[in-house]
Computed example of a mutant assay.
Amino acid sequence: MDADDTEETDEGVSRPDNIPKRSISLPEVGQQIQSPNGNVYTFTDRIGEGHFSLVYGCTDLWKNRLAAKIFKPLGRNFEDVEKSVIEERNKLLFLRHPNITYIFDAFVYNDTFYVITERCGSTLHDLFKIQNFDGKVWIYAVARCLLQGLEYIHQNGYAHQDLHFGNVMYSFVQDELISEKSAMTFKIADFGISKLITDVSPENTRAQWLLPPEALNSSEFGPLDQRIDIYHVGLILLQLAYSAEIQFTREQILDGAPRHLAQDLEPPFSFALEKALRRHVHFRTASAQELWRDINSETTGLPLLDRAT
């Protein structure tokens, strides 16, 4: 697409002047697409698919390994999809942090919206494919990266609302001089349903199996705010501690089953995770920094409050 055939919208996402149709066109392997900023993306493979989007692998002129998120219409008109793309693009531009996936580009081509980000290795789901996987070995590394990124998100007024194994990526940082050498880190991805903390409400779209207690009964368990993310991180670390992927039913969530499992762990995880998984929001861990301190605490055997559930 020639850059002369595009215009800038008020929000800064480039799109064609005249759009006669409104159906997406998926890229083929080997296809090259030029964005309005002059970069050319060569598509290599299809990585995966979520409810709102498809993800393809691609490379750019600099030979960076990238991922292209392509938004599905889902019955929405062109303008509504465009609004979703702009919102996610703006969140990623605003929330730039080493432990958050990095955005490179955003544009529309053939009525199809693309958001180009760095390509990570895969999600935390893949860790469980390791033979004789011991999740406790990974807890500190995952927690340190995840909680740093989450603290930054909260400090800037947002709640992610959708933290789970599928949205935490591991990434290898490439050594520019020794191509065979790299180091692993972990990053938060997918800000599709993240909201300003002031806008978090029970009506926000969330996976049913990921609902925290306050989303099920806010009158009993407290308000919905950034502590939703603390609960979700607690679930991630709990599953790593048990070296198993665990999903809880609505009834188990309301009964506090995740917290009860956490209490059976060894210190400091028993104290740190039962606190992060408390049903009542005002008794729950207040921040990502606090959870990190609890994970690194040498304190053991602290009495648990009867009401702190």
Results as ranks from 00 to 15, higher is better:
R278V: 02
E214F: 05
S270T: 07
T101A: 14
C145H: 10
D45F: 09
L74Y: 03
K129H: 12
I197F: 03
I24S: 14
I103T: 02
I153E: 01
L93C: 13
L26P: 05
V281H: 02
I193F: 10
D162V: 02
Q252D: 11
S297R: 06
D264Y: 13
T101I: 15
I70P: 00
Q263I: 14
H282N: 14
L146R: 00
I246N: 01
A244S: 13
R293V: 10
F191R: 00
E245F: 09
R307F: 12
S218H: 11
G135K: 03
T123N: 10
S122K: 10
T6K: 09
K136L: 08
Y152M: 04
G75Q: 04
E274S: 15
E266C: 09
R119M: 13
Q155E: 15
S53I: 05
G50M: 03
P268M: 03
G256P: 05
A262P: 01
E8Q: 15
W292T: 04
H282G: 08
F71A: 08
A207Q: 10
Q289S: 14
D294C: 09
Q31R: 11
I193Y: 04
P16T: 08
D294F: 10
T300R: 12
Y158P: 04
P36Y: 06
A67F: 02
P267R: 09
R96T: 15
V281K: 07
L146C: 07
N99P: 01
D134W: 05
G121E: 11
P303T: 11
